[in-house]
Amino acid sequence: MTKQERPANQGRRVAARNRAALITAAREVFAEQGLNAPLSAVARRAGVGQGSLYRHFADRVALATAVLDENVRQIERAAAAPDASLTSVLGVVTWHLTRSTAFVDLLRVRGDGAEARALAGRVHSVLAGFGPAGRDLSADELMLAVAMVSGAVAGPTLAERERVALRAWRLLGVEVGPLRQPETTAADEQSDSA
């Protein structure tokens, strides 16, 4: 290749995009195949080489932690929205419960290790910020309810998992807003690359 034919090095911009793609792919692959899914499947789904995966994440634990951290950041962003309510935040939490095996495990057992406990603590803080819900549930009771719903979330299809999750919330007497993932902003992707 001559100098004129080579694409320009896009450096950090591509690195941030690759990292975001790897996190999204890991969430999907882990949801489909479990946390022991081959990391090569994550790299393939993200459209990057395995070397790129290991440049961003030293191992499976680092990748799963990044997925969990992104899930929690999305919940925190939902809670910080001007029109935020416990109902809307629980919609985001439930979206993650139906799509992320690692997130379910984190909230069900409050994690193994300091990082997982810190992430679960951040979710607890978000829920505590809305005060009692439904039947005057405290943040601790809401975390227990989230764990209970996560234990009920089962089914071969996404639609079935969503249906079961919403039914479980109704049985607990807690209103949940539409299941949705908050938008990822350019600023979030930039902070990921730092």
Rank of each mutant, 00 (worst) to 15 (best):
M1D: 07
K3F: 15
Q4W: 14
R6P: 02
A8V: 06
A16E: 05
N18P: 06
A20P: 05
A21D: 05
L22C: 02
L22Y: 02
A25K: 01
A25V: 13
A26P: 04
A26V: 10
R27P: 05
E28W: 09
Q33E: 10
G34T: 00
G34Q: 09
L35T: 10
L35V: 09
P38I: 14
S40R: 12
A41P: 06
V42Q: 06
A43M: 05
R45A: 11
R45I: 00
V48T: 04
H56M: 01
H56D: 02
F57N: 04
D59N: 07
R60G: 06
V61M: 09
A62E: 00
A62P: 02
L63V: 00
T65V: 09
A66K: 02
E70Y: 09
E70H: 09
A79F: 04
A80W: 00
S88A: 11
S88L: 07
V89R: 07
V89A: 08
L90Y: 09
L90N: 04
G91D: 02
V92T: 01
V93N: 00
W95E: 06
W95C: 00
S100A: 02
T101Y: 08
T101N: 15
F103H: 06
L106F: 01
L107N: 00
L107V: 13
V109C: 04
R110D: 11
D112V: 13
G113P: 08
G113M: 09
A114R: 15
A116F: 09
A116L: 07
R117A: 15
H124C: 02
S125A: 15
V126R: 03
L127A: 06
G131F: 00
P132N: 02
G134I: 04
R135A: 12
D136N: 15
S138H: 14
L144F: 12
V146H: 06
A147C: 05
M148I: 14
S150K: 11
S150M: 11
V153Y: 11
A154Y: 13
G155E: 03
G155D: 00
P156C: 10
T157R: 03
L158M: 09
E160G: 10
R161E: 00
E162T: 13
R163W: 09
V164M: 02
L166F: 10
R167D: 12
R167G: 15
A168H: 13
W169S: 15
W169L: 15
R170V: 08
L171V: 14
L172M: 07
G177F: 01
G177L: 02
G177I: 00
P178C: 00
L179C: 03
Q181R: 14
Q181W: 01
T184V: 12
T185I: 12
T185D: 05
T185A: 12
A186T: 00
D188H: 08
